[in-house]
């Protein structure tokens, strides 16, 4: 039976931030995505210059009370590092219990203060915490009091309509001992079609001395460097951008074909629910294959049929074949497929 190895201190997020500072480059981060930041996707983005990877948000309340929730929410292995597990919580007790259980298996723990989903907000989780600076500080303080440097703790926040409120918020959690802060440059009601407010992120960075990571509107490596130029932060987190293009931080404009082959390999070996696999592939291929082929792919009901669909329409190499994982362009098998 495989045993999980102790964490490598070099993969502590703070060590990674320090290392990247020395190298004179930003930290590249794949942010947490509800449902999608599962083990196969995390393994994939690490192959393409992603320094730090988040798990999807895990609800502390469920994790500490329910074995089935633990099985379905958190699968890992010895290569699943550096990893920050994102937690959704609304009280100190659940958080401390969650940290006690999970910290030997992760490199850091991030408190979600940014999720705008109304079901979570009603529960006092996610962006609801932006109105509870004292509670967030208490949670951070409780973890740091108990574990000190043994546990790296981050808060991922959104901005308030009044930025003074956000400044007070970040200063408060910094005082409580947070290790670093990720700032999404939107309020909890700003639509993703509206541009992220990088001036606000810059202001937060100037207001604290702990490292700050910028989140919002990172769709390419060039965007990442532009965001750092505007905000002077230590790192950039991509979320929607890296879902469409997991090779974003390696400088690819679109997901290279080799990335799609690797995703198949990770998904079928580690195991991934069919609908999640289909969604990932649809994000990576949207606008890049003919519409009728795309529709055909979206209508497929099982993973076995999707394997046949790929083998019938493309050259999909397996890991034991020469050239696996190295292709860039989509290798269509038929002439029909050449017309997008």
């Amino acid at each position: 039976m495989t045993k999980i190895e102790p964490r490598n201190p070099e993969n502590n997020p703070i060590r990674i931030i320090e290392r990247c500072r020395k190298e004179g480059r930003p930290v590249f981060i794949a942010g947490p995505m509800v449902r999608y930041s599962k083990l196969p996707f995390r393994s994939l983005v690490r192959e393409y210059n992603t320094d730090l990877v988040y798990s999807p948000m895990i609800l502390a309340r469920e994790f500490v009370r329910n074995e089935f929730a633990r099985l379905s929410d958190f699968t890992t292995n010895n290569y699943d590092t550096p990893l920050i597990v994102q937690v959704g919580t609304n009280n100190v007790t659940d958080l401390l219990r969650f940290v006690e259980m999970i910290h030997p298996f992760v490199d850091g723990i991030g408190i979600n203060c940014g999720c705008p989903i109304k079901e979570q907000i009603r529960e006092g989780i996610g962006a609801a915490l932006m109105s509870e600076p004292d509670l967030v500080s208490d949670m951070v303080y409780a973890v740091k009091q108990k574990y000190g440097d043994k546990v790296c703790i981050e808060t991922k926040i959104r901005i308030h309509p009044d930025l003074n409120e956000t400044v007070k918020f970040v200063q408060k959690v910094e005082k409580a001992g947070v290790d670093f802060i990720t700032v999404h440059g939107r309020t909890k009601t700003t639509r993703s079609s509206q541009p992220a407010n990088f001036e606000a992120i810059k202001l937060m960075n100037e207001s604290v001395s702990v490292p700050v990571i910028a989140n919002g509107d990172c769709f390419s490596l060039n965007d990442a460097y532009e965001i750092v130029k505007k905000t002077k932060v230590d790192g950039v987190m991509a979320v929607r951008g890296i879902l469409d293009n997991p090779a974003l931080f390696a400088g690819y404009e679109k997901a290279p074909w080799g990335c799609i082959e690797k995703f198949w390999e990770y998904s079928t070996s580690y195991g991934l629910t069919y609908r999640l696999l289909q969604h990932h592939l649809s994000c990576m291929l949207d606008g890049r294959i003919p519409k009728e082929l795309y529709k055909e792919m979206m209508d497929i009901k099982t993973l076995a049929q999707l394997i046949d669909f790929f083998d019938n329409n493309f050259i999909l190499k397996r890991s034991n074949e020469e050239g696996f994982g190295t292709g860039i362009e989509i290798p269509f098998k038929t002439q029909r497929a050449l017309h997008i």
């Binding site: 500490v64 633990r70 699968t75 219990r97 070996s269």
Partner: peptide, 22 residues
């Protein structure tokens, strides 16, 4: 209640999905 959950997780650990586990 928490103690029994913690014990279960401590004994069994998280679900490990290696390349060959299936």
């Amino acid at each position: 209640e928490y103690g029994s959950q913690k014990q279960q997780f401590h004994m069994e650990g998280p679900m490990l999905n290696t390349k060959t586990w299936l």
